[in-house]
């Protein structure tokens, strides 16, 4: 049986851990709120962008032309790139483990010769740098905050890889934020762009100034940036939510542990008192 002092020491240590996890939970809650607000605010832009693109595509399809932009080019896939969005930091439950497991599953059928990885987030970089599939892009230390300039640069780099023929298909794997307690691991094709759905509700005969090809040239880089941005923003929100839940769980477990230890402490204290009493009584008896 541990001594009174040992138990006391353990209680104190568990309590300070609890304080830390509680603080982390609250920090993540605040960050989550911010991330959600940001995602909310940038949504109109993304939605409108999709709409313009689909209007443009259907206008071109109507005129009997094909979409004049290299991002749509389908070619035999000799090299595949997987963009993996993880978090930079741990302590967020199974968040990164789930993403990495899914990535490994995806890469199972590939060899280092026909696949490559671009990792966003330190966890993914650390895991895959010691494995056969080459990591050609490393983007870390976002700290869970959106950085539009950086995202733009990442999207541009990927687009260049695709257009120059270094890779023939780019997929992006990320955690999509659903609710605070749920995220969905999502795999979607980034490039080439799958044929855009035609909109029927928002039909209009557009005047294109100067012409559709020029508009595509301007629109497409922004479109891919926006998609990348949406994916990363979702992932950050999901990360903060996962951390909040994990830390909430840890705080609760610490509380339970303290209860158990306190009980143990009281029991030990009581038996010590009883023992002392018995000693005194025994001593008094002996004096008689």
């Amino acid at each position: 049986m541990p001594s009174l002092r040992d138990i006391k020491r353990r209680i104190r240590s568990v309590r300070s851990t609890q304080q830390i996890t509680k603080a982390m939970e609250m920090v993540s809650a605040a960050k989550l709120r911010k991330a959600q607000m940001r995602a909310e605010r940038s949504r109109p832009y993304a939605t409108k962008m999709e709409l313009i693109l689909s209007n443009l595509s259907s206008a071109i399809a109507q005129a009997g032309g094909s979409v004049p932009h290299p991002y749509f080019e389908q070619r035999p896939v000799r090299k595949t790139t997987l963009v993996l969005v993880t978090s930079d930091r741990g302590l967020c439950g199974s968040f990164n483990a789930n993403l990495i497991r899914r990535a490994t599953l995806f890469l199972k059928d590939y060899t280092p010769a026909n696949a490559e990885l671009v990792c966003i987030g330190k966890r993914g970089v650390d895991w895959f740098k010691k494995r056969p599939i080459p990591v050609v892009g490393r983007h870390q230390d976002f700290g869970g905050n959106m950085d539009f300039t950086r995202v733009r640069r990442i999207a541009a780099e990927l687009a260049v890889r695709f257009v120059s023929g270094e890779t023939d298909a780019i997929h992006i794997l990320y955690a999509k934020f659903i609710t605070t307690s749920r995220y969905e691991i999502t795999l979607s094709r980034f490039l080439p762009i799958e044929s855009v759905q035609e909109s029927s509700s928002h039909r209009a005969d557009y005047i294109f100034e100067p012409d559709p090809a020029a508009i595509f040239a301007d629109l497409m880089p922004r479109y891919v940036t926006t998609r990348m941005q949406t994916a990363i923003a979702e992932s950050f929100a999901a990360e903060h939510a996962a951390r909040m839940i994990a830390m909430g769980g840890a705080t609760k477990s610490a509380g339970e542990m303290i209860d158990v230890l306190t009980l143990q402490f009281n029991k030990a204290r009581q038996s010590a008192i009883t023992k002392e009493l018995l000693d005194i009584v025994g001593g008094a008896e002996a004096l008689k």
Binding site: I52, N55, L56, A204, D205, Y206, I207, F208, E209, P210, A214, I215, D218
Partner: peptide, 16 residues
């Protein structure tokens, strides 16, 4: 793209 342009109500559909 081709210089400043004005848009008033009921303008024709346009992308630039």
């Amino acid at each position: 793209a081709q210089g400043y342009l004005g848009v008033m109500a009921n303008h024709a559909a346009l992308i630039t």
